[in-house]
């Protein structure tokens, strides 16, 4: 899991789960805000016909922040929704993942988070699979 992967995971993670896992690691690193959490919008684009020219579909809410740890590591977060605590925790994880705590955080926060996100997606996929139509051909009489 590289930085791009964990930032994406933290962006879409359920905020309550991230909060529980973050509290579980019991870390309270000193940091300074480079950009305090702020809520804003991102314009989501689609493509005409799925593959053609881009068009503006509508906005989504996003919360972002940036911070620097005492050791100098900079953490960024862009998370979906309006949860400033999630953004702060995501930025802290991002910063700590660049230091010696990376292995611990990966095992205690990122991997359980990924497992949960994948389990939720897998459950929906399994329910969808159960609604797949199995066509069969009716046999007509001799002709």
């Amino acid at each position: 899991m590289d930085r791009k992967d964990w930032m994406g995971l933290l962006a879409r993670a359920p905020a309550d789960l991230l909060d529980r896992l973050w509290r579980g690691v019991n870390m309270a690193p000193a940091f300074r805000w480079l950009r305090a959490p702020e809520v804003g919008g991102v314009m989501v684009q689609g493509r005409a016909g799925g593959t053609g020219a881009p068009f503006n579909l509508g906005e989504m809410t996003v919360t972002r922040c940036a911070l620097v740890l005492e050791g100098g590591a900079v953490g960024h977060a862009y998370v979906q929704g309006r949860d400033k605590r999630q953004a702060e925790q995501a930025a802290l994880v991002d910063a700590l993942m660049q230091g010696p705590e990376a292995g611990h955080l990966r095992a205690a926060v990122l991997e359980p988070l990924l497992a949960e996100v994948q389990a939720r997606a897998g459950l929906r996929a399994a329910k969808a699979a159960a609604t797949k139509v199995e066509f069969f051909t009716l046999v007509r009489g001799d002709d």
């Binding site: 809520v39 919008g41 991102v42 989501v44 684009q45 929906r124």
Partner: peptide, 29 residues
């Protein structure tokens, strides 16, 4: 919505990669 600062625009979403809950075609069985 008008009170939100705009952080930017996304890349166009790839609907071919959609994790589909539903997917039907009226043209191809």
């Amino acid at each position: 919505r008008t009170t939100l600062p705009r952080f930017g625009s996304s890349r166009p979403v790839e609907t071919a990669d959609m994790r589909c809950d539903r997917r039907i075609s009226a043209t191809f069985k």
